[in-house]
Design a protein around this nucleic acid. Structure first.
Lengths: 308, 308
DNA sequence: AACACTATTGCATTATTAGCAACAATAGAC
DNA sequence: GTCTATTGTTGCTAATAATGCAATAGTGTT
């Protein structure tokens, strides 16, 4: 018995849901599939698939075995590729997690570029603002913004994330333009709810003193884009990362305020599990993103005067 | 070509250093080995072994490929075993790391017991007081004493680690027995150097006040057993984990002092990488150790009056 | 109850693999 | 320098295993 071919057959059956389709996909006869799966089951001493002639379903053992089989086949390909003659030509699946807004604004372009460079790498993108467990979810690489839980993950800085305080010109005319951090307490805050203290905004004033201002809450959301749209509509003042706000600022839809105050920047990292064997495509993507963004990302290009 | 058998053959050759021995080990002819390795090389498009008729050596590609091949074969066995009929009968290699002293004193017995329970599990034990990188070293499970770097590792408490202050009766007669923590400043400290501040010993006095005493340094070592021997020889006072000191105390070679002071205990943990698939033997060993030690480990049995 | 479609099984054919033995190559002994 | 023992490779044949086809049995649907 060829254990590997049995594994392949089993995986193909699970993924297609039918012996017949699996056989077509692998380009062999369905009888072969049938026999291989049977052999595998016999070898394991456990039934993997409940099968009547018309319906297939995984047994408990099969449910447990399937993801491991998939992983195994991927690992094998990975290992072979790592020493293969065509090292340049990366391939395989790459599961990527990133925050929603950043993903939509800046990752999609970068990923398209990467995909063109390495067309045989299949990208599986999970945009999600809540921190998922990379290991459990089988994520190869995550883009994380801000402080990291000091973990055994490998973290490579990709770009600085600067912040800017802004509001619509109309709002500022109506409500007045604040000139000190204290002035903010009379304004309407559009606050990002995924922070421990959404209403507390940190500044370093022109004299170099750090201060934290609590701004009245007008609207709260877990999405920066939505807050920015609210600010554009004159709903209030928004503390936004430049990677979201830059376009609206350059357009004139939003006006940066308190630009003589410094807002502590954070860093965007590429984070990946410290596995024993890190797939080359993961390294390649991290490299590529670093190169795309870097210490002076393009979205900050027109904002030099704003981010001090 | 059977990729798996090729892998097996390659691994066997690397491990035995000879095609002939590898063939014997696998119970097949050496010509088969030769052909399989050749096929594998052709498949990969890279030479794995430099071979003259008398000497074998790995190429760079081979050196890279070998550990991955080993891992792969282990993973496959692991996956198959996880659903195999003989789930009870664990097997495979289990790499364990533990602090030196604890390993010698209490792990060896426990491991022998485990080994009897699961004779087909091969234990590979690394006693080492410096924290190694579990992932890089391929450690399946580590026993760690004290606070953990909050990491993505899974940590399961195994036992409380209590401390006791002690010295030889002869020493105490000669130098006087301290009755308060302050008294220690006139004594000779035998200090464990693997701590950030070896000479600072923490106490909670009978009144419940926490205090930290800096004790004069007489001897410093990175091994608790050695310090304890020094204490037995009357060299000074030693702050020792009970798992090291218990025997000497029960023997009367050492006398606990300041027993009305409480020394904050720490915890021994079983730590393992949060891999996607945690081998059953790892879980089993962690369970077994927990059961062997537990909240009231045997080494504290005769010391109830000491550890308050 | 008949139908359509499924997985399984038996069997002849085909392809692959193993083992043996001969061969070539090399390190070490003398 | 030559000889020898041993190693990896290769050619060939026998044995083995895998494949595809067709027939079979089972199941959900109409």
């Amino acid at each position: 018995m060829n254990r590997l071919e049995s594994l392949e057959s089993f995986v193909a059956v699970v993924e297609s849901g039918q012996f017949t389709i699996a056989a077509d996909r692998l380009g062999i006869g369905k009888s072969v599939i049938s026999r291989r799966v049977s052999e595998l089951e016999e070898h394991l001493g456990a039934l993997l698939l409940h099968r009547t002639t018309r319906t297939l379903s995984l047994t408990d053992a099969g449910r447990e075995f399937y993801p491991r089989a998939v992983q195994l086949l991927e690992d094998l390909d990975e290992a072979e590729q790592s020493v293969s003659r065509s090292q340049q030509d990366l391939s395989g699946r790459l599961r990527l997690a990133a925050p929603l807004s950043f993903g939509l604004f800046h990752l999609s372009n970068a990923l398209n570029g990467f995909s063109n460079l390495h067309p045989r790498v299949v990208l599986d993108i999970d945009l999600n603002d809540s921190e998922v467990d990379l290991v459990q979810e089988g994520i190869d690489l995550a883009l994380r913004i801000g402080d990291l839980d000091n973990s055994t993950m490998v973290a490579r800085p990709l770009a600085p994330i600067n912040f800017v305080l802004c509001a619509s010109p109309e709002y500022l005319q109506r409500m007045g333009t604040p000139h000190t951090a204290e002035d903010l307490s009379g304004h309407r805050g559009l606050c990002y709810s995924n922070l421990p203290e959404p209403q507390k905004w940190p500044f370093i004033d022109p004299a170099g003193r750090a201060q934290t201002i609590r701004i009245p809450l007008q609207m709260q959301a877990n999405n920066g884009q939505l807050l920015l749209d609210a600010a554009s509509a004159g709903q209030g003042i928004c503390l936004s990362p430049t990677f979201i706000a830059y376009q609206a600022i350059l357009d004139g839809r939003l006006k940066p305020i308190l630009t003589d105050h410094h807002i502590p920047p954070v860093t965007a990292y590429a984070v990946y599990p410290n596995r024993r064997f890190i797939p080359q495509r993961v390294r390649a993507l991290a490299d590529y993103l670093r190169q795309q963004f870097g210490d002076h990302p393009y979205w900050d290009d027109g904002l030099a005067h704003v981010i001090s």
